[in-house]
């Protein structure tokens, strides 16, 4: 089946001449949840804006449900719900009227039962007649979600839905996402919380400096890059890794006081036992041992860091 969202070499140059997207190519399958990670200014919001019609892509092609977002914008946008990063709401409107308005603007017939259901799910039903300005920040965020869901989208964009939101609401949000996944909605979310991506995404994309650095299945990513490290504190510092231990993936740290052994948790043997024997034979005496696992966060930081050092080097 064709992907739900197809992005082909999308570029965006803003009016000032700043290139915020430098050719992004990405497919998002029907029903999947993709988390986009990236530092501030990476281009996450710009990418979403180009897909949703807030910004015009400068070149490249973007299709949603097989419809080009520029030439067949009606059919494309019919499928899309957007929860923007900024909490943009009319302060004097009531929750009910603003949600109803969104449904109407998307050309959907009035359906009070559906909206009632939605507001109840988002714990907003008691506040339906309250003015937006009377709501707390977290409630306003939920109103944005209610608006985006009011027209029953097939693809939902959540631009940092949990920024500045308390732990409880964040869990609520994850629960809502789970519910939407069950009903087959494709979800693209951006976040700065790596544990959030770990918790809910099927695939994870990392974007930095307007380029997509990587997209991978979360599980594969975790194992592929999820290497473990064994840190061995030594009795006596070493000047170099002894030749006898050359076959191991070793590095020296702390001025030669520590040997760092990287190994793959997915491999059949870790090689630790053999390393210990060889070390003994070579006369390297150890003081202490500890292991640590790479988290998604390390992977992310490494990727983005590598990318930015490359940039400054160029």
């Amino acid at each position: 089946m064709a992907p739900m969202v197809e992005i082909r070499d999308a570029r965006k140059v803003y009016d000032g001449g700043f290139e915020a997207l430098k050719g992004v190519t990405l497919d998002i399958e029907d029903g999947e949840i993709l988390a986009l990670l990236g530092p501030n200014g990476a281009g996450k919001t710009t990418l979403i804006s180009c897909i949703c019609g807030i910004a015009l892509p400068s070149s490249g092609a973007i299709r949603v449900g097989g419809n080009d977002v520029v030439t067949e914008y009606r059919a494309a946008r019919d499928l899309i719900g957007l929860v923007p990063q900024e909490v943009n709401l009319e302060p004097f409107e009531t929750v009910w009227s603003t949600v109803r308005f969104t449904r109407g603007v998307f050309g959907k017939r009035r359906d009070d039962a559906l909206l009632e259901d939605l507001l109840k799910q988002l714990s907003l039903w008691d506040k339906r007649n309250a003015k937006i300005k009377e709501l707390s920040g977290g409630m306003k965020r939920r109103v944005l979600i209610a608006k985006a869901l009011s027209h029953e989208p097939k693809v939902l964009f959540l631009d940092e839905p949990t920024a500045g939101v308390d732990v409880e609401l964040r869990r609520d949000m994850w629960r809502i996402v789970d519910g939407l996944r069950a009903s087959g909605v494709t979800i693209i979310l951006t976040t700065h919380y790596i544990e959030e991506a770990e918790a809910i995404a099927d695939r994870i994309g990392v974007i930095s400096g307007g380029q997509l650095l990587l997209v991978e299945e979360k599980a594969a990513l975790m194992t592929r890059l999820g290497r473990k490290e064994l840190r061995i504190d030594l009795q006596e510092p070493l000047g170099a890794v002894p030749d006898a231990l050359a076959e191991f993936d070793l590095a020296l740290a702390d001025d030669g006081h520590t040997l760092v052994y990287s190994y793959d948790t997915g491999a059949e043997r870790t090689g630790i036992a053999r390393l210990m024997t060889e070390m003994n034979a070579a006369g390297v005496i150890l003081k202490d041992l500890r292991t640590s696992q790479n988290t998604l966060e390390d992977i992310f930081v490494n990727l983005v860091h590598d990318d930015s050092t490359e940039e400054t080097g160029a």
Binding site: R77, L82, N88, P91, K147
Partner: peptide, 12 residues
């Protein structure tokens, strides 16, 4: 106030 995003992203 920024609610224009809604008009721009709607199929209209």
């Amino acid at each position: 106030i920024g609610t224009i995003y809604e008009l721009l992203s709607a199929p209209i």
